[in-house]
Design a binder for these strands. Structure first.
Lengths: 221, 221
DNA sequence: ACCTGAACACCGTTCAAGT
DNA sequence: ACCTGAACACCGTTCAAGT
C-alpha cells in the first residue's frame, strides 16, 4: 500500500508484470498500475515514456529470463534447449506474446534478440545456408509462438490447468458428433492436455526434419 | 454515407470486417463502426449482443472462407491443403487470429470448427492414434498460427510487403554485429522474405515427419 | 525532480426516451 | 421494432500547477 521507496522505472516494470499476471493484458492500465504503486497515473510518466515503453520493458525482462544454451551441446540439442527455454519463459508471462502479437510491443533490445541470435548460430553450425537458416528459424519460432497461442486461446491445455466446467475449452463443448465426427472422437485426447510435452514432441519432429535438410547427402544408399 | 438499407447483423459484420481491415483490431470500436454505418453507436446493440459477438461473428465468417480439401486426396495432401487454406484466409484478415489470441473472440460455431474436424479426420486416416492425432493437430495449428503471428509481429515478411525504411522490421534495424553476429549475418536473408513459402516449407517438413510417426515400421532395414 | 488535478479525446455499455 | 441522448465507468496522455 504505502509507497515507501521512491518510484523507479524498475519498480514500475515490476508492478506492471505483476498486474499483467493477475489481470491480463486487458487489465493492465496505467491507472490501475499506478494505484498498485500507491500513486496517481500521471506519476508513471516520470519514469516511463508511455504504455508501449512499459510493454517493451516487460518483454525485454521476460526474454532475459531465457536460459542460454550450453555452447558445448551439439547444434540440434542447442536449438531444442533455446526453443524450450523461450516457450517456458513466455508461458510464464503470456502478456508478452500477446502484446507483441497485437503490435503493442516490439522486440528491439539486445536481450530480447539474444535467443534469436543463438538459434541462428545453431542452424548455421548445422550447415544450412542463409535461406535454410531463415526457414529453420521461422519454423521454430512459429512452433513456439503458435503453441503458446493455442494455449492462450484455450485450444490446447496444460497439465496444470484444471478442467473445470467453466474453463472448458470454448472449442470443445457442444460439439455435434454428427457434424464434426472426427473432432468429437478426439475430444477426450484433447482434454487430456499436455501442451508443453506436445510442443516438445512437435519440436523434435521439426528439428529432426531440419537435420535431414542440413545434410542432404546420405552416407548410405 | 446515407444508410438507405436498414441495419442488419450482416451489414454490421461486413462493416466491422472492413473497418478492421483498414484500422486494425485496435481501431475497431463500436463508435467508429457505427459512424461507418451512418448511425449512432447504440443502434448496433439492436443487431449484435456486444463487441465480442461482433468479433466472434467475423471470426466465423473468415473461417468459413477456408476452402475444404478435396476428399479424394491422400491424407497428407489433404492436411497440407487445409493448413494452407487456413493460413491464407487468416492472413487476409489478421484481426481474427489477433482477437482469438487476446481472448476477445472464441471459435465455437460449426463453420469455425470445420477445418479442425477435416484435419483431424486426415490424421486419423493416416493411422495415428488419439494421442498422435492430438499432437499432429497441435503441431500443425501451431505452425499456422505461429507463422501468422510472426508476420503480424513484423518478424517475417511477405513478398508483397514493401521494404520501406519505416516499415523495416523493428527486430532488424540497429543490430550490433559484434553482439549479435549470427542474426546480423542472417539479416539480408530475413529481409528477402517469403513468409508464405517459408510457412509451406515448414509445413512440408512437419507433415513428412508426422508421416514417419504414422508408419513407424519401415519395410526396409 | 517528482507528483497531482483537471482536462481532452477517447472507450463499451445501460437505460430511459423518442419515433 | 428500431434508433437516439445522456450518462456511467472506464481508457492513455498532456499540461499547468504544486512541493
Amino acid at each position: 500500500m504505502a509507497p515507501r521507496q521512491p518510484l523507479t522505472r524498475d519498480r514500475v516494470l515490476d508492478a506492471a508484470l505483476a498486474l499483467a499476471g493477475t489481470d491480463g493484458l486487458a487489465g493492465l492500465s496505467m491507472r490501475k498500475l499506478a494505484k498498485t504503486l500507491g500513486v496517481e497515473a500521471m506519476a508513471l510518466y516520470n519514469h516511463v515514456a508511455n504504455k508501449t515503453d512499459i510493454l517493451n520493458g516487460i518483454a525485454d525482462r521476460v526474454f532475459s529470463e531465457i536460459d542460454r544454451a550450453d555452447p558445448g551441446l551439439r547444434w540440434d540439442q542447442r536449438a531444442r534447449a533455446i526453443a524450450v527455454g523461450m516457450y517456458r519463459a513466455l508461458r510464464r508471462h503470456p502478456v508478452v506474446p500477446m502484446a507483441i502479437a497485437t503490435s503493442q510491443a516490439n522486440l528491439t533490445t539486445l536481450r530480447a534478440l539474444q535467443p534469436l541470435d543463438d538459434l541462428t548460430g545453431a542452424f548455421y553450425e548445422a550447415g544450412l545456408d542463409d535461406d535454410g537458416v531463415r526457414q529453420a528459424i521461422l519454423a521454430v519460432y512459429s512452433l513456439v509462438f503458435g503453441s503458446l497461442w493455442l494455449t492462450t486461446a484455450g485450444f490446447a491445455r496444460d497439465a496444470d490447468q484444471a478442467i473445470t466446467p467453466e474453463h472448458v475449452d470454448p472449442y470443445l463443448h457442444r460439439l455435434d458428433p454428427d457434424k464434426l465426427p472426427h473432432s468429437s472422437r478426439l475430444l477426450p485426447a484433447l482434454a487430456a492436455g499436455g501442451a508443453e510435452s506436445d510442443f516438445m514432441r512437435g519440436l523434435d519432429v521439426l528439428i529432426a526434419g531440419l537435420a535431414v535438410l542440413a545434410t542432404p547427402r546420405r552416407p548410405s544408399a
